[in-house]
Amino acid sequence: MSVWATVLAAGIITYLSRASFITAGDRITLPPTVERSLRYVAPASFAAIAIPATLNGDRFANFGDDWPRVIAVVVASVVIVRWRNVPASLLIGMATLWLILGVS
């Protein structure tokens, strides 16, 4: 497969994932239990990304030790829980990391 075909196919696959249920709209009905359970997609999926990334690192956070990441995320989490302010949590979380890593 050529580069272009692969890239476009990757885009189509991603679009189909995103479209799936929204495009189906009210032409499908899910059992009430399943419908109710989908309210928990947000916490389940954000945790499934954030928790391994914090404890083990990922492609966005692949530096040395684990503990600076964990401390920075804990500090940012306190900001989120206390003030529910995303920009502040990002800024304070990053600043915590810079402080630990001694970035200057």
Binding site: Y40, A42, P43, A44, S45, F46, A47, A48, I49, A50, I51, P52, A53, T54, D58, R59, F60, A61, R69, A72, V73, A76, S77, I80, V81, R84, V86, S89, L90, G93, M94, L97
Partner: peptide
């Protein structure tokens, strides 16, 4: 790019509105 895991941790916490939400995050993570 570490702002990405920071953001997802924040989104996780903001999306928890009740106790089953805590279970969703704990089991998902």
């Amino acid at each position: 790019t570490f702002a990405v895991p920071l953001l997802f941790a924040g989104l996780m916490l903001l999306s928890i509105t009740n106790r089953p939400g805590i279970v969703a995050a704990a089991v998902g993570g």
